[in-house]
Amino acid sequence: MTRVRAIERGSSAVFVLAAALAGGAALAIAHGVWRGGDTTRFEATRALAEGAGLTDLALFTEARYARHPAMADLHSAFQDGPLSFEHFPSGALVAPARDFPAAGLRNGGAR
């Protein structure tokens, strides 16, 4: 009977909902703390990156400058033809590398 009376107040219902939301958020935070510190998962990947000399993430495999953006030069998206339009969807997502060559392209591409 007391429990029913407690829920009759609007604020009690708000507290119940707030507790449920806070509980959900606390579970997410606990999961983040528990899993986020787990960097052992990276060890095997790092060993592979070292062993095979990998330089890029295998996120976009549709075009070479999207597969290896760190290795692609400024012109690679247009090598099918200097005036060709970029036609791969990831081309819209992968920004060209702007910081190298640091001094820009000189002498036919050599730095």
């Binding site: 990156a49 330089t55 993430l57 030069d73 012109h75 591409g109």
Partner: peptide
């Protein structure tokens, strides 16, 4: 993941390619 990638990669260039 890329912390153990090669320190430097040297890539030959010819005609911008």
């Amino acid at each position: 993941v890329l912390r153990d990638a090669p320190d430097v990669v040297a890539q030959a260039m010819r005609m911008g390619r």
